[in-house]
Design a protein around this nucleic acid. Sequence first.
DNA 1: TGATAAATGTTACCTTATAACATATCAACC
DNA 2: GGTTGATATGTTATAAGGTAACATTTATCA
Lengths: 159, 159
Amino acid sequence: MDNIAFASHDHRACIKTGIEAVAKYCAAQKLQFTPLRRRALEILLHEHRAMGAYDVLDHLRRDGLGSQPPVAYRALDFLVSHGFAHKIERLNAFIACARPGQDHTPAFLICRICDAVAEAQLEPSRGMLGRAAEETGFTIEQAVTEAIGLCPNCAKDIQ
Amino acid sequence: MDNIAFASHDHRACIKTGIEAVAKYCAAQKLQFTPLRRRALEILLHEHRAMGAYDVLDHLRRDGLGSQPPVAYRALDFLVSHGFAHKIERLNAFIACARPGQDHTPAFLICRICDAVAEAQLEPSRGMLGRAAEETGFTIEQAVTEAIGLCPNCAKDIQ
DNA sequence: TGATAAATGTTACCTTATAACATATCAACC
DNA sequence: GGTTGATATGTTATAAGGTAACATTTATCA
């Protein structure tokens, strides 16, 4: 489990290694990791929370990198489609992936107070779900779990 | 697993028993199952697919039951908050619950071609996710899984 | 039956997302 | 090294999804 979102840590290093991992993967796969896309990922990495596309756009604008919604959505689509970021449907928001470039089945723990999001990994073929799909002849291509609840910090504050 | 969404069946009975189960539950819990809310549920039950709030609103309008978005959203909120319907975040859409009134942890099998949705049940405390949450001190209040893929009908057509 | 709460009606608006087309940049091959 | 086809970015306009705020009506129950 990746609990980094809920714990303090060396955040600068965290951004740096995230970017480097993706840069390396893109080089290997001949994907264009353009300044715009790189910056979008940096923006997401800078927070350990999900950010709305328009929030990302605001940051991009300040940096003089695109100012209209499609610019942000396209950069985010690139990141999501290659697994460098995830979309948290529940929040209509995006978050940098904790395991970029590695094939995985993510689950998200979303704090309903502060919106912090932690990414956990599930086994690709989850028991009951896989069985249920098999029984009906449904072919699962991708599965995402979103859990809502309280992060340790907010749980502490709430009592 | 509830595979009814992918198989032919007596649909009229299906709507009737769905409404009756909810009506009974509401009576027992002293919830107001008003004509508007009942109609909204009927609309959802009529399809075994997720419907957008504005689609539901269109139907309500035709029936002379409210014509503005908040009317539909409030009826849907009522249904969702009491577990009579679910929101499919991935589709920004709503679907009648297959197990109304019963406490459950749903998973959805969403066909990416025809948008049909089947509801499966998972054990509330899923192995890896529960463990991951425990490790970080995250308290899960609710978890939803959405699986994207191909329903048997569309899988057949696609080759 | 009157007081209170719950539900519905209505206006106005905000947020999220995309279609469509123009322009610029890249990749790679001759 | 210039041409060409593909990929990426810029820009306008608008579609789709969702809610705040307040007025009015309907239910609940003392």
